[in-house]
Design a protein around this nucleic acid. Structure first.
Length: 486
DNA sequence: CTAGGGTTAG
C-alpha cells in the first residue's frame, strides 16, 4: 500500500497481482477497493492476472455484486477468470449460478481445465444434482481431465452425496494414486450411506496402505460407528486418534461421539460427555439428542435437552418443533400450543420441509401439499393409488408424526402429502420401472414416511434412495439400509 | 521473468 501511495517505486502487474491475492487472503474489502482503484488508474485492469486477483478479492470479501461487475468488464475472460467466478458463486452459496456460468463459459469457447472441473463438480455435489454431475463428468472425460486428483476427489464425493455409492467406488478404485482427501471422501461417503462395515474396512485398508489418517478421517470413522450403533468402537477410535495418530479431538469429533451415544439411547451419558468437553457445547449436539428423546418418547429428558438447546440458540426452530412433536406424540395438546405460542412470540419460523428429485436433468422440487407441479394431477392420482396399494400390503399410518391437533382421518391425509411422498410418486410416473428413485429432503425423513417408503419399495419393486438432512436411506424390497436406526 | 482460480468434515 505504501508503494502505491508514495508512488516512487515501480509497481508492476506482478506486484499488483500478488497484492490483490494477499488482500483477498486477508478478506479486507477497504484496502482491496483502494488497490482496485489504483489498478484502474494505472491501466492494469486489462491484465488478466491482476484483474482476476481483484475478482477473487471481492469474492473472498463476499461482495458478489462487485465481483459480477468486475467480471463483466473483462473483455475476454480466460479459464482462470471464469473459474474464479464459478468458485465464487459456489463459495457464496449460489451453486446453481456456478453451473449456469459454466454453460456461458462453454458458449464463449474458453476451454475449462482441471481447476474448473474440481469446482464445478463440487457445485453439482452441493446441489445433489446427479444428472448435471454426470454431464459434467462426461465433459471432464472428453477433455481427459477426469483423473486429475482434485477432479476425481470431487467426483467421488459428488457420486456419494448424490446417493450413487457404486459409481463413487468405481472411480475410487480406478485411481492408482490416492491422496488422504480421496480416501476421506470415499470413507465419509460410505459412512453417510450407513455402510459402516465397508467404511471401517476401508479404514483398515487405508492404514495397511500406510496412509496416515487425519482429523477428517476420524470424523468419518466415528460417524460410521455412530450410524451402526457401535458405541464402544466409537470410543476406541476416539482415544486411538490421540494416542496413535496425534490428532487432537475437536468439537466435531465430540459431536460424532455424542451422536453415537445418543443414537444408542444413552442420552444421559451423552449429556455428561458434553459437560466434560473442553469446548462450549454446540447447538447441533443438543439437537441430535433431542431427536433421540423424541424417538424414545422420553419427554422428561427431552424438555431438559430442549432448554439447553434454547439457551444456546433461542430462535432455533427445530427445538420448538421437536418439543411440539414430542408433546403431540404424547397427546399433550396444551403443551403443543404452548410451544407454538412461544414460537410466535419470539417470531421463530419453522423451517419448511421440501424434497426434490432429479429427472431428465431437471430438478423437481416439492413442498408439503404442493400442487404447483405441471403434472400435479397425475402425481396426486399416483399417490392415491400408491397409498391404497401399500395399505393392502399392511401399511398402517402412524399419526404420531402429525403436528396438528386434528381428527384421525384428517391426520392420515396430512401424512399423505409429505414432500418426500410427492417426489417419490413423481419418480414412479416419470422414470423407467427399473430405475432407482433418488430423492433428497432438506429435513430428516419422518417416521411414518420412512415406514411408507419401505412398503412402496416392496409393492413397486423399486429401489428408492432418500438422502435426508442426516444420512442416506436405501429402501429395497420392504426394508431400509438404516435398519430403522436414524 | 510466467502472477490470478481447485478436492474430503461441519
Amino acid at each position: 500500500m505504501r508503494m502505491i501511495h508514495e508512488g516512487g517505486e515501480r509497481v508492476d502487474e506482478i506486484t499488483l497481482a500478488t497484492v490483490a491475492k494477499a488482500t483477498s487472503c486477508l478478506v479486507a474489502l477497504e484496502p482491496g477497493k483502494q488497490i482496485h482503484a489504483h489498478v484502474i488508474k494505472t491501466g492494469y485492469s486489462l491484465d488478466l492476472c491482476v484483474i482476476s486477483g481483484i475478482l477473487d478479492m471481492y469474492i473472498k470479501c463476499g461482495d458478489m455484486g462487485s465481483a459480477h461487475t468486475v467480471f463483466s468488464d473483462i473483455p475476454a475472460p480466460d479459464d482462470v477468470a471464469w473459474t474464479t467466478l464459478i468458485s465464487g458463486c459456489l463459495e457464496n452459496g449460489d451453486e446453481g449460478r456456478s453451473v449456469s456460468i459454466y454453460r456461458q463459459m462453454r458458449q464463449s469457447g474458453v476451454q475449462p481445465d482441471e481447476y474448473t472441473f474440481a469446482t464445478l463438480v463440487k457445485a453439482a455435489s452441493c446441489l445433489t444434482a446427479l444428472e448435471q454431475g454426470k454431464q459434467i463428468h462426461a465433459d471432464a472425460i472428453k477433455l481427459e481431465l477426469s483423473l486429475d486428483p482434485y477432479v476425481a476427489t470431487s467426483l467421488v464425493d459428488m457420486y456419494a452425496k448424490c446417493g450413487n455409492i457404486e459409481d463413487a467406488y468405481r472411480l475410487f478404485r480406478r485411481m492408482d494414486v490416492r491422496s488422504i482427501v480421496l480416501w476421506n471422501a470415499m470413507l465419509v461417503g460410505l459412512a453417510q450411506h450407513g455402510n459402516a462395515e465397508e467404511a471401517l474396512d476401508l479404514f483398515r485398508v487405508m492404514k495397511s496402505n500406510n496412509v496416515v489418517p487425519d482429523r477428517v478421517t476420524f470424523i468419518g470413522v466415528i460417524s460410521a460407528c455412530s450410524h451402526f450403533g457401535l458405541v464402544s468402537e466409537a470410543y476406541e477410535h476416539f482415544s486411538s486418534m490421540q494416542r496413535d495418530y496425534g490428532v487432537e479431538p475437536e468439537i466435531e469429533h465430540y459431536s460424532c461421539l455424542v451422536d453415537a451415544l445418543g443414537r444408542a439411547g444413552r442420552v444421559q451419558e451423552a449429556e455428561k460427555l458434553i459437560a466434560s468437553m473442553p469446548f462450549e457445547a454446540s447447538a447441533s449436539m443438543y439437537r441430535a439428542l433431542l431427536g433421540v428423546c423424541r424417538v424414545q418418547g422420553d419427554t422428561e429428558t427431552g424438555k431438559r435437552v430442549a432448554e439447553q438447546l434454547l439457551a444456546i440458540e433461542p430462535s432455533d426452530s427445530s427445538a420448538y418443533v421437536l418439543i411440539s412433536n414430542m408433546n403431540a406424540a404424547a397427546n399433550q395438546w396444551d403443551a403443543v400450543n404452548d410451544a407454538r405460542q412461544m414460537m410466535k412470540r419470539k417470531n421463530v419460523k419453522k423451517e419448511p420441509g421440501f424434497s426434490w428429485i432429479d429427472v431428465k436433468n431437471k430438478v423437481h422440487l416439492f413442498m408439503v401439499d404442493d400442487k404447483s407441479h405441471p403434472e400435479a394431477d397425475l402425481i396426486y392420482d399416483k399417490l392415491e393409488d400408491l397409498m391404497k396399494r401399500i395399505g393392502e400390503e399392511g401399511y398402517v399410518p402412524d399419526t404420531e408424526f402429525v403436528l396438528a391437533d386434528v381428527e384421525e382421518e384428517e391426520k392420515e391425509r396430512a401424512l399423505y402429502y409429505h414432500s418426500e411422498r410427492l417426489a417419490i410418486a413423481y419418480g414412479l410416473i416419470s422414470t423407467p420401472s427399473s430405475a432407482i428413485i433418488r430423492v433428497i429432503k432438506n429435513l430428516r425423513v419422518c417416521g411414518d414416511c420412512h415406514n411408507a417408503i419401505k412398503y412402496i419399495s416392496k409393492v413397486y419393486q423399486r429401489e428408492i434412495v432418500v438422502r435426508d438432512a442426516n444420512r442416506f436411506h436405501r429402501f429395497r424390497n420392504g426394508s431400509c439400509s438404516c435398519g430403522d436406526y436414524w
